[in-house]
Design a binder for these strands. Structure first.
Lengths: 337, 337
DNA sequence: CGGGATCGTGTGAACGGTCACGTGTGTGCG
DNA sequence: CGCACACACGTGACCGTTCACACGATCCCG
């Protein structure tokens, strides 16, 4: 309905100029056009615009899990919050796609590819990389958040060194029986990096970790609770627990409280992520901070940069992680008997 | 690049037919076209398609808060999870827009309107209705989730009766000093409905609520904790607490535990929403179930129905809420002294 | 006082699809 | 054996923008 708009005197390409505030349009003409647009309550059509410009100003976000489970994880919550902010600041829209039940590994990507509706895609690493390959084949610029093997730019926390320093911290406090509550997907790269960090800290200190003390959970509070239950049912229970996210650490703390085991006097607990609630617990949780929101922001900025023509090499940007020592860790209690 | 596709023998409108699997195309031709599409790795352009069809097959979702705070609320998590599922099932895409800091009440809606990129909009009620009006003026079909005054179809839980039955439950257990932990936005309609329900339960029983025992929070665990602290600092503390969401109820329970007050023996606690974790607490939380996911699904279905031509009157669909009695409520302890 | 920049605006052709038709085959029927 | 009709496919126009140009004024300067 642009011929309606040029009822305001001029011909409709001039209106286009005004909209894209290109130069080469007289101030008064501009005013006239703007007024007409306002009067007629005119909104340009993105469809036509993106057809002509061959871009949509929309970026896609593919989630590793259904919306309700993805966002239940505080880390994803934060990263995606960061993405959203940057995306909005730069006047892009955000199109989300989440996997369905039938094909968790690929459906979200596939849906994103099928309709050519976005300029680029941010993917939260979670499952394998086949989905990412799909997107690349389809010609999308892609940046990943988290640990991926695919040859795309990515941003991720330094999982290994985070795990390393957390373990080191516990070792320094005298702990020898350190339990891990890891994730249950052995092929997850972030998971592997963290395990590597833990083990390396052990061997570096000449005190290798007890592999029997590795339990797994689903990154939920409940699964942390259950994993802790298994660990503390053992004949010789651990004196410290390092969980691979805060939710599981909180679950473990809950179990310890139920069993009347004091944290940190009897058992130390360390989390991962530094969720907002970590600081508010009693005792406040010692945890590895990974700057989730920054991760998301950085990913979004990288992608937008790529869309604007910046060449970005397909290497991961690694953001440092940082151990935040609070009240849930303490020296190992003196051995009795 | 459709002329590339009809390298496969036919002329490019036939390809269009194949894509939209319209009838009137010979099976073998169809096969030939499909093969060609596959060979050339062809994907139709949504832009062109939506230009020609005057629809985008995308629905917009406007959030009441930034992504990270919206999804931190379990209720929103569930509703939007429901929306997402239905949207995906019906082959629509989901475009999300969240408010920025400058103009929380309108920016998300405005951004949605500016680019005419969606066929219809689902809005999570939160702030006022001006944003919704904006969308209506722009000509969008809109359906709201939650309590709104605007003349649009909406789906919402029965807040009033939920609050009513929760209060009634506490009264029936003999509680007389019932504290409320409400939200802090007095003009929120859901909030008002819940308060109305509580009060009505009181007056119906001839035992009006003590208005002094109404504290407010921000629907977070921490704010529930703080509100409870204020309530239990009083000379004559309440014997029951009804929080307007589960997170605040959990916060209250945490405070009570810190103070050595047993739930439910000494104080009963009731939540609202029936978050998945509510059942997993110890003691398991008595709470008002509001079927959040169904709310979202229903909203999405309604909107999609509207997009397909169904006329939907601008009245709210009210889903019943239902009190789930678990272990956090018990008869008021016998008065001592 | 005329000619080349420069500025403001109009022109035509895409962009990649869909849709309402029109046309050429093959089939069934009288 | 010829007619009507269904079916398969091609034709042209259009959806609402942007873009590279062409064009006519205006301006500056020699």
């Amino acid at each position: 309905m642009r011929h309606v708009a040029d009822r305001a005197g001029v011909s409709y390409q001039t209106v286009s100029r005004v909209i894209n505030d290109a130069d080469g349009v007289a101030p008064q003409t501009r005013e006239r056009v703007l007024a007409a647009m306002r009067d007629l309550n005119y909104r340009p059509s993105v469809a036509a615009r993106s057809l002509a410009r061959a871009r949509t100003d929309t970026i896609g976000l593919v989630l590793p899990f259904p919306v309700d489970v993805t966002f239940a994880n505080a880390h994803f919550l934060q990263t995606i919050g960061g993405v959203d902010r940057v995306v909005a600041e730069n006047d892009y829209s955000l199109l989300v796609s989440s996997p369905d039940d039938e094909d968790p590994a690929l459906s979200a990507h596939r849906r994103m590819v099928r309709r050519r509706a976005v300029d680029g895609v941010i993917v939260e690493a979670g499952m394998g990389d086949e989905g990412i390959e799909l997107l690349i084949e389809a010609g999308y610029p892609v940046v990943a958040i988290g640990h991926v093997a695919a040859a795309v730019p990515s941003v991720r926390p330094d999982d290994e060194s985070g795990a390393y320093s957390a373990t080191q911290h516990l070792l320094a406090l005298g702990h020898r029986r350190i339990a891990l509550i890891a994730g249950s997907a052995p092929d997850n790269l972030a998971q592997q990096a963290r395990l590597r960090g833990c083990r390396r800290a052990g061997t570096d200190a000449g005190l290798p970790l007890d592999e029997d003390l590795i339990a797994t959970g689903e990154f939920s509070l409940e699964s942390g609770h259950e994993a802790a239950a298994r660990l503390f049912d053992r004949d010789v229970p651990p004196t410290a627990v390092l969980a691979f996210n805060d939710a599981m650490a909180i679950g473990a703390m809950r179990l310890l409280r139920e069993r009347g085991i004091d944290v940190p006097r009897e058992v130390s607990v360390v989390g991962f992520d530094d969720t907002p609630t970590a600081a508010l617990l009693t005792p406040a949780l010692t945890t590895v901070r990974i700057f989730s929101s920054e991760l998301g922001q950085r990913a979004a900025r990288t992608l937008i940069g790529m869309l604007r023509g910046t060449k970005v090499p397909p290497v991961p940007a690694v953001l440092p992680s940082q151990l935040v020592v609070r009240q849930s860790t303490a020296p190992v209690p003196a051995r009795r008997g």
